[in-house]
Design a protein around this nucleic acid. Structure first.
Lengths: 222, 222
DNA sequence: GTCCGACCTGCACGGAATCTGCACGCCAAC
DNA sequence: GTTGGCGTGCAGATTCCGTGCAGGTCGGAC
């Protein structure tokens, strides 16, 4: 059984991006969009770890942290704005186990979650995170990719993008989506940048594998 | 039969981390999360050694120490906050045999436990903790390593890192993960330090055995 | 007490890998 | 044909990594 992670985050874009990313890594995920709902959710589903935004409607993140921890000890990873160092310290004082400042990278988030779970002796899923779609096989625990059986070296971003596409082969992903999920945080800039990474991917995995959908985005061809 | 160790510690994160580490060293481990439960547990299972947090809900660590010792003499290793020197002295006065201040390193904890057990003539477990992955064979009870059959001398930290990597060959471990495991507790900084140890490892076990995953961390190559 | 060696830590620097995004020409849709 | 979108060459910026090196700690020898 995979570890269950609760995400308490009001910004839908981030919440969804993080949730999807964690699911592709093999975790079970539940999401709440405000503080009260978050506390209730945690009581109900008893997560193995909580990802908690500090700025929340209805109930402040710090208070949520207190309540969640009071019910039952559980590792908490806090998300804070870049310059809310003060809050962060308070958070660590009342039971958060780690924190990330926005904008954070999805990669780093996953890495830290794995560390926290390891500390509490919950093995992060191992056989999970294996994705295959057509000739593409990729393993997020070793971060290795094979195309038609041949191992290919990808840069970190390329790997993340391909993993995203492979998760739902054929489905179109917009540049916004790709940016948000790979970097964990949208920042408006750089649609052209996605193109560049796609270019790299095509050069390595074969151009025919990645389909351009004019005006929309990209999809993995199946 | 392996020695049985009871951990009485309310912070789940620490308790599980310690439990896990001790189990990999071959000990049997039981855990209680508050003072009363701890005393009850010790009466029931009769551990060979107790690891006891000083700050505990329901019953103070010092009182737990008294009661456990009253029932039956057993070595007690106390965990204290960095600056609770006063309590520590009291603890040693009433029967604790050793203490560690948080944050402590996992390695030091194990070492002290072995010393205490030896004192009461309980042999630490011998044949546990054998790991092999590819050409790497390592034995955490003797802390010896052989690469392709040739014994290699590693420093303590190098050994711990290699053991961690070998536990899941191929899987990428972040620097945070390696630090957290080896040093027993979080410490934010010092990523360069991991590189230094990896450097040492590569020099001793062969550079090709340890794969760098750019932007992520390291993995044992298989 | 003092010295010495093994080890840990982490800075600094150069170099490598990667990311980013502009410019410009081409293509698809209408 | 026009227009907005797309592919690609290219290069600067950025991040990341390996290594030399030095200070610090600890324990043992003398």
């Amino acid at each position: 059984m995979s570890p269950l992670i609760c995400i308490i985050e009001d910004e839908q874009v981030i919440a969804n991006a993080v949730a999807r990313r964690l699911r592709t890594e093999g975790f079970d995920v539940e999401v709440a969009h405000d503080g009260l709902a978050g506390v209730a959710l945690c009581e109900r589903v008893r997560p193995d770890l909580v990802v908690l935004d500090l700025m929340l409607p209805k109930l402040d993140g710090l208070e949520v942290c207190r309540r969640v921890q009071a019910a039952r000890p559980v590792p908490v990873l806090m998300l804070t704005a870049r310059d809310a160092e003060e809050d962060m310290l308070v958070g660590l004082g009342i039971g958060a186990d780690d924190y990330l400042t926005k904008p954070f990278s999805a990669r780093e988030l996953v890495a830290r979650i794995r560390v926290l779970l390891r500390r509490v002796d919950l093995r992060p899923p191992v056989a999970e995170g294996l994705v295959s779609a057509g000739p593409v096989e990729l393993d997020s625990s070793t971060r290795k990719v094979r195309i038609a059986g041949v191992e290919v070296h990808l840069t970190p971003t390329e790997f993340d993008i391909l993993a995203l596409l492979a998760e739902r082969p054929g489905t179109v992903h917009s540049r916004d989506q790709l940016l948000a999920e790979v970097r964990g945080w949208r920042d408006g800039s750089g649609h052209r940048t996605v193109d560049s990474h796609i270019r790299g991917l095509r050069a390595k995995v074969g151009a025919e594998l990645i389909r351009t959908v004019h005006g929309i985005g990209y999809a993995l061809e199946v």
